[in-house]
């Protein structure tokens, strides 16, 4: 097993009016390569905040968060951009596809940022679209896709660079049950085939059914951290 994320005494406070609001309090967690883990808890419990800090989109107020050996608090903008570009994939509740780009171009985007050579890039994009079963929608634009298809494109866009860690914030919240299961199965498969670590923020029961580790948050604290084994061993 290989530890890829370490969180030690993480506290996150936001300035609110004249005072402060503590969104995360004294979090201590560690994640191994290949985990399929979710942060669950009611709305406002701090799931998104935690995911954003792991994703280097935000910084800790106190404590240490280390992702792939890099201390999030000490990264420059440039370094954190590079970390995200090369090693982290994001999936959002609202998909956040670029509306003026085709499906192909949306997926290609991250690779263009990496200056990957054209031939290699082309193959990677087709592979990624194949993973999510959308090779027939290459030329479509986001507004021509159904919700389930949109989120699958978002998964392909996040996965195309084969990141070490995928961060999915409420990925099923806008999807019906059938599409939710479809994309969850896709993510389980990618987790197994590519050994990508998946971290979810969710309060969707359907997602929980697929998780192998559930970390419960309440008011910014970890109240429960349980390993499950519905589909084989965690970190296999």
């Amino acid at each position: 097993m290989e530890s890829i994320i370490q969180i030690d005494q993480l506290t996150k406070r936001f300035p609110v009016g004249a005072g402060e609001f503590t969104a995360l309090k004294d979090i201590r967690l560690e994640f191994q390569k290949g985990e399929f883990t979710g942060f669950v808890g009611p709305s406002g419990s701090g799931k998104t905040t935690l995911l954003n800090i792991i994703g280097s989109l935000d910084t800790p107020t106190e404590g240490e968060v280390t992702v792939l050996g890099q201390s999030i608090a000490h990264l420059t903008h440039k370094q954190s951009a590079k970390l995200r570009n090369q090693h982290l994939g994001f999936i959002f509740q609202t998909y956040n596809l670029f509306p003026v780009y085709t499906v192909y171009e949306n997926v290609e985007f991250a690779l263009l940022l990496q200056h990957m050579p054209a031939a290699e890039r082309h193959k990677a994009v087709l592979d990624a679209l194949e993973w999510v079963g959308l090779t027939d929608k290459i030329k479509s634009r986001p507004d021509q896709l159904s919700g389930g298809e949109g989120q699958r494109v978002a998964i392909a866009r996040a996965m195309v660079k084969r990141p070490a860690i995928m961060l999915a914030d409420e990925p099923t919240a806008n999807l019906d049950s059938k599409n939710s299961h479809h994309i969850l199965q896709t993510m389980v498969r990618l987790n197994q085939e590519l050994k990508t670590t998946f971290l979810f923020a969710t309060h969707d029961e359907k997602v929980m059914g697929y998780l192998r580790r559930i970390i419960s948050l309440e008011d910014g604290r970890v109240v429960k951290d349980e390993a499950l084994a519905p589909q084989g061993q965690a970190g296999a």
């Binding site: 989109l57 995200r84 570009n85 940022l113």
Partner: peptide, 16 residues
Amino acid sequence: QKEIGTYIALGMTRWQ
């Protein structure tokens, strides 16, 4: 804004 946030999440720097 969401698009801007997404660019940054995908690994662009703010100046890019």
